[in-house]
Design a protein around this nucleic acid. Structure first.
Length: 636
DNA sequence: GTGGCGTCC
DNA sequence: CAGAGGGACGCCACT
């Protein structure tokens, strides 16, 4: 704790909340009716005000749910807090269950009474990470509508690179107010308990404060969005995306746990076999999963030449082991094989079945909308955006992702989306022309790199050109490209030079973007998503170059993120109306996966492709590939 | 909790 | 001369 600053109190004298009972626990029917009347009274006076820009915060109320779990798909409702004006809050406990708990209003009654207000779209609601509350409330028959402001999303849109957008941090930053933390009322570590076991008086103070702070933050953040011209991105993209993500997360995806178990058993056998081979070659037993022990074995006991070091010792990563294998050593290959299987088993075939929700029998990832600096989504618990696909063993894991009976999986992915956006953003004549004429961009680059006619371009030349095409987006160096392609550094540099000689618009874009980032301190995407690049002025050359690559990459990656978000929103709205039995299941950055009734597949496929391709009008055509099948692997 | 490593786009 | 690829999440070992 910071000396002199007690939790729950303002940091500065003038910021202190007024004295008096302003946070109230609601325990009687009479009190509840009073609260409901107050909530209804927050209705905007005229329908024309609803949804009007700038109306946020003037009417409506903040809402927050307290539950027994961080995972909304497993959470049970403990209480609901509401705030209609700053420094005021109500907490309605419905699920506390400790010895000596006072009489609470029956949950069913509270739900039934709150439902019409929470579902009234014309009454604005404010929340912090309101996606969570939407999912929890849905399990009690409430489809919250009118969610007009999410403070976490607003903070993210204002500055996506911040490490945290938690309410505690937002309160401190924007209100200079230190909130009661979750740990302070629930404990931490082994002593942590769920909120249903914490006294109502304590949870009431905590929860009312959260609703209160959320309301206050809405007043502060809403004008800031307007100032930074971020309202459109917020209203047109991030806010409507919440409903899409809620639907996806709630529905979940089906996996075949038996198939996973079978794979795990098979991997175990192979791991044992390869492990024995490794021990034999090593002349000792060791923990192959320990980079430390592995480094000591390879570079001390066996005296292999070490290529690079980490902060803590020898590096034993895939590059190092591959180089050693190329040099003729047998052991590194075995270790690589072991590593791959070990990864697949521990991260996927062992872990995924444990994530099956017992109530739904499906896997419900969490899509986080406020993590990445570029505007992409991330996925966790479990992460469904890094399911293997490259190797045959990996693809077997994808085969365990299956549709509901009578359905098929449809996968639709943007073809070369970042290169197409590069063409649009840079306006490069050659790139634009190539895409407008539907040419093979990798072959086109290969023609230049190798100075040969089309007929003489080998698949390997095209592959190398493909690597160059993609590497440019990331701002790769000749050093890394040479390692990637296993070619001399000079040759790699020649590739890069030839690339920029052909695509001069890209060269100019790279230069101009760095200059612009220096001048304004940030870069933006097509939809005006912003990312600050403070290190662009760093005197540390490394940090500065990193910042320059970031500045160049972010508008590309971020615009691709904008595009697929728009597509998700559009598809969601139209699907809900026309085909409610079609479900969007997953997003993997440039891919959307759907669960589709077999009979409807052809129509849906055509619809999805058309929506994804047309959601933004760029200088170049956008192409989407779509496939379907009985599992996620087949759908590729 | 941190670092190394590996999976994805 | 060192460091030299954008964005994520999760598992394991080790401290």
């Amino acid at each position: 704790m910071i000396p002199g600053v007690e939790r729950g109190y303002a940091l500065a004298e003038e910021e202190q909340k007024p004295e008096g009972k302003i946070y109230q626990a609601v325990l009687t029917e009479e009190h509840l009716q009073q609260v409901l009347a107050e909530l209804r009274a927050t209705h905007p006076p005229s329908p024309s005000l609803y949804g009007r820009e700038g109306a946020g915060g003037e009417f409506g109320f903040a809402v927050d749910t307290e539950t027994t779990s961080e995972d909304p798909m497993r959470a049970e409702l403990v209480g609901i807090s509401l705030s209609t004006k700053p420094h005021h809050g109500y907490y309605i406990p419905v699920g506390h269950r400790y010895i000596g708990v006072p009489q609470q209003l029956p949950r069913e009654v509270v739900i039934q009474q709150l439902k019409p207000i929470l579902e009234d779209e014309t009454i604005p609601k404010y929340g912090q990470n309101i996606k969570y509350d939407l999912i929890v409330l849905s399990h009690y028959g409430i489809e919250l509508k009118g969610a007009q402001f999410d403070t976490m999303l607003a903070s993210y849109i204002l500055n996506p690179s911040k490490r945290s957008h938690s309410l505690d941090n937002l309160a401190e930053e924007y209100l200079h107010y230190r909130t009661i933390t979750y740990k302070e009322i629930a404990g931490s570590g082994a002593k942590q308990v769920t909120l249903d076991l914490v006294p109502i008086e304590q949870v009431s103070e905590y929860s009312c404060e959260d609703a209160d702070v959320t309301l206050q933050l809405t007043h502060v953040l809403q004008p800031q969005l307007a100032e930074h011209h971020l309202q459109q991105l917020y209203q047109q993209v991030e806010l409507p995306l919440i409903d899409v993500l809620v639907t996806m997360e709630r529905h979940g995806v089906k996996i075949d746990p038996q198939m996973m178990e079978h794979l795990s058993a098979e991997f175990t056998k192979q791991l044992n076999r390869i492990g024995q081979e490794i021990y034999a070659l090593a002349g000792q037993e060791l923990n192959i999963n320990s980079p430390k022990q592995l480094g000591e074995l390879l570079f001390e006991k066996l005296q292999m030449p070490f290529a690079k070091k980490t902060k803590t010792g020898y590096s034993t990563d895939i590059d190092v082991l591959t180089d050693l294998a190329r040099a003729g050593y047998e052991l590194p290959n075995k270790i690589l094989e072991y590593r791959q299987l070990s990864k697949l088993k521990s991260t996927y075939t062992d872990a995924l079945p444990k994530q099956i929700n017992p109530k739904t029998g499906r896997i419900h990832t969490s899509y986080n909308q406020t993590v990445t600096s570029t505007g992409r989504l991330s996925s966790s618990d479990p992460n469904l955006q890094n399911i293997p696909i490259r190797t045959p063993e990996g693809r077997r894991i994808r085969r365990a992702f299956i549709p509901e009976d009578g359905h098929l999986l449809l996968s639709a992915d943007y073809s070369q989306i970042e290169l197409r956006i590069l063409a649009h953003v840079t306006g490069d004549a050659e790139l634009v022309k190539a895409y407008q004429h539907d040419e093979d961009i990798h072959t086109k680059t290969a023609l230049r790199l190798f100075g040969l006619p089309v007929a003489e371009i080998t698949p390997n030349m095209r592959r190398e050109a493909k690597t160059v095409n993609f590497s440019v987006i990331y701002g790769i160096s000749a050093f890394s490209l040479s390692k990637d392609l296993n070619i001399p550094r000079k040759e790699a540099q020649r590739y890069i030079d030839e690339y920029f000689a052909l695509y001069q618009g890209v060269k100019h874009y790279v230069e101009d973007t760095i200059v612009l980032a220096r001048k304004q301190g940030y870069v933006t995407t097509l939809l005006n998503r912003i990312r600050y690049i403070p290190d662009i002025h760093s005197k540390n050359a490394n940090a500065r170059q990193f910042a320059e690559r970031t500045a160049v990459n972010t508008p590309i990656q971020g615009t691709a993120a904008d595009m697929i978000k728009l597509a998700m929103i559009s598809i969601h709205k139209k699907l809900l109306q026309a085909y409610p039995d079609v479900k969007m299941l997953m997003q993997v950055h440039d891919e959307l996966v759907f669960e589709v009734p077999e009979k409807r597949m052809e129509a849906i496929k055509t619809f999805v492709v058309s929506e994804m391709e047309s959601v933004l009008d760029l200088k170049v055509p956008i192409k989407v590939d779509a496939h379907y099948g009985k599992n996620w692997d087949e759908a590729h």
